[in-house]
């Protein structure tokens, strides 16, 4: 598909001797929200790490705007316009909230997102901007992590487990910001444990299972049972018989 901004082609990757991904194919269309679902250990985070260069892979396994970028240095991939909100937030603990946001954008091209826009999206951060990033509540930290990624004015934005460990009411607040982010035209990959929530905001999805794609498509084209089966692996069992 030529409209893809990001194409994963037969991606194999892992950590040392441990292989986590066995030939993944995924396409992300420009301006689209793609939900990446799957059980713990299915390989979702590894996929995001391969895209951002934190896990090594072969060059032509990842195409960005048609160009092979697999295995490139993470800082160069970030410069190309791929940003990530990492699992567990990973704020810089010796940087204030504002510095965490600034460092996200100071080497990036100017664009839609600025300090003011991020504060507009998450007003609480303006109040707390002098606090150390890690002195905030989990939900507020997540807002900083999202803001930090937005500051890069990315063309592709990867979210890794944004609701993990947060209270439901906080998760609601975070997702409330989602339409405003998507409206800027950025392409999004959303890794989420909460399948229902992920499929509600995504136009299409990919389900991983033990390092392979077990189901992919649009949420409305598959019934709940099929998705559940792809998620937990019942499909494999059924298919074998």
């Amino acid at each position: 598909m030529s409209g893809s901004i990001l194409s994963i082609r037969g991606l194999r990757a892992g950590y040392g001797d441990f292989q986590a991904l066995f030939g993944i194919d995924v396409d992300l269309e420009e301006g689209e929200v793609l939900a990446l679902i799957g059980a713990n250990g299915a390989g979702k985070s590894t996929l995001l790490k391969a895209i951002t260069g934190l896990v090594r892979c072969e060059r032509d396994m990842i195409l960005y705007g048609g160009q092979p970028i697999g295995g490139e240095r993470p800082d160069l991939i970030a410069r190309r316009g791929i940003a990530m909100v990492p699992e567990g937030r990973r704020l810089f603990r010796s940087l204030s909230v504002e510095e965490n946001l600034v460092i996200g954008g100071e080497r990036a091209p100017k664009g839609e997102w600025s300090l003011d826009r991020v504060y507009g999206l998450f007003p609480i951060l303006r109040e707390k901007r002098r606090n150390p990033g890690t002195a905030l509540s989990g939900g507020q930290q997540q807002m900083v992590a999202i803001g930090r990624a937005l500051m890069a004015n990315p063309r592709v934005l990867l979210f890794d487990e944004i609701s993990l460990g947060l209270a439901p009411v906080v998760i609601k607040d975070i997702y409330a910001a989602f339409p405003a982010i998507a409206a800027t035209g950025v392409s999004i990959v959303l890794v989420e444990q909460d399948v229902v929530r992920a499929l509600a905001v995504a136009r299409c999805f990919v389900c991983l299972q033990e390092g392979r794609v077990s189901l992919a498509g649009r949420p409305e084209d598959h019934d709940r049972a099929a998705i559940t089966a792809a998620y937990f692996g019942a499909a494999n069992v059924a298919g074998a018989h």
Binding site: L54, A78, P86, R90, F92, R93, V102, A108
Partner: peptide
């Protein structure tokens, strides 16, 4: 300074600092 932020960020979390377009 920007350099100082880069120093602190790299010291705090060298992996994520790379995602801030910092060449370690």
């Amino acid at each position: 300074t920007s350099l100082g932020r880069a120093f602190r960020a790299t010291s705090d979390d060298p992996e994520i600092a790379q995602l801030m377009m910092l060449d370690r």
